[in-house]
Amino acid sequence: MSPEEAAELIDRELIFELPNDLQCIEDAVEFVVSRCSTCQDVARKLRFNFRVSLVEALSNAMIYGNGRDPAKRVRLEVRLRSGRLTARVTDQGRGFNPLRVPDPTTPENLLEEGGRGLFLMRKLMDEVHYNDRGNSVTLILHLAGSGPFQDQATA
């Protein structure tokens, strides 16, 4: 296998076990985005939507999922396959019910400091799915066509 072929293969699947440390999120996100150079046709969504959503998923996992426990880990799996960029973030917590998260844009919630993470992920990514336990979120970006963010931005 040539180096180019190996790089292509690596670019299609990245798996990390991250320490439960908020300070490592930015570097992890930048590394993932740098390895997705084959996705430049969706450069804007990758540059902004994916970065923000991945930060949200990782910070939710470390803060709420793992309860800031430095002994716990967060698993990040990134795959580029079949026209979709998929990032799955799994923590070691008990999980939560994403349907119970209130709408942060209502007047009673607008002045709250927190509560916008899941909302942003849903707005910025093409698909967001949780597992039944609620400790693993999958973010999906379609690599062809425009997603919800572009629609919003040009509306």
Binding site: V52, L111, G114
Partner: peptide, 17 residues
């Protein structure tokens, strides 16, 4: 600025208050 996440937005809300 490159990007802001929800906690960045949240801190701006908190500071505004």
């Amino acid at each position: 600025t490159g990007y802001i996440d929800s906690s960045g937005l949240g801190v701006l809300v908190s500071l505004s208050k």
